[in-house]
């Protein structure tokens, strides 16, 4: 086949994006564990290891730039390079969100009881993994399936946020009914506010992980079918 070295570089680019996806997924899972357990060592591993993800992103950016400058890819090859560049950006952002989540665990880990954090977070992570697999396999239907799952994730995140806020308001009303007895326990109030804040931030970030999964699926679909229906 002509341009054999060029074809090897394209194959290598695709492989490296998939490897970055797997690496990000591992870090993200560690972040979920750190958030749930409050394990400082795990959280530190995620936060201090973020530069490794950034380094991989920069390497992929360099490779895409060099392929564009030196090989002038066109048609399907061009879509592979541009999609890979955009997907690596989304993966890098998922890595950033993993560092956020790792830090939300608080001293004892866990979140507000109204939030099924693990299931939400794992489902969002699965969406990222499935989007990367769709990119790897060039599977347009898998891309569309990932995008469709995001509506469900968004709805569950919205309900979880509402439950947290509702619980906060009900606790406030109960405190008023007790004639301000909570004022005598500022530590409990501060702890409740911290719990709510961390929970809401975690929900927001998990929802964003789902959005990045959709972005990855959208770029993969564009790469395979030149179809921008999922790109917004």
């Amino acid at each position: 086949m002509p341009r054999e070295n060029y074809q090897k570089r394209l194959d290598g680019l695709r492989r490296d994006v998939v490897v970055m996806g797997e690496f990000v997924r591992e870090r993200y899972d560690t972040a979920i564990e750190a958030a749930e357990t409050g394990d400082d060592d795990l959280a530190r591993e995620v936060i201090e290891g973020d530069h490794e993800i950034n380094d991989r992103y920069l390497e992929l950016e360099d490779e895409c730039t060099e392929l564009l400058a030196l090989q002038q890819p066109v048609a399907g090859d061009l879509r592979l390079v541009t999609a890979s560049f955009k997907i690596s950006t989304d993966l890098e952002r998922v890595g950033d969100l993993a560092t956020n989540l790792a830090g939300y665990g608080g001293p004892d880990g866990g979140f507000h009881p109204a939030v099924d954090f693990r299931n939400l977070a794992v489902d969002a992570g699965d969406m990222v993994a499935d989007a990367v697999a769709a990119y790897e396999m060039g599977d347009p239907e898998a891309c569309r399936t990932v995008a469709a799952r995001d509506d469900d994730l968004d709805e569950r995140c919205r309900r979880a946020s509402e439950a947290v806020v509702r619980d906060l308001l009900e606790a406030d009303r109960a405190r008023d009914a007790r004639n301000g007895t909570a004022e005598g326990k500022p530590d409990r109030l501060a702890a409740a506010l911290d719990d709510v804040s961390r929970s809401l931030l975690a929900i927001r970030d998990v929802e964003r992980v789902g959005d990045h999964a959709v972005n990855i699926a959208a770029r993969a679909l564009y790469m395979v079918e030149n179809d921008d229906e999922l790109i917004y």
Binding site: P2, R3, Y6, V74, G76, D77
Partner: peptide
Amino acid sequence: RVEDYITGKFG
């Protein structure tokens, strides 16, 4: 065939 030609896979 056009894709193969312009991407250098043709020939």
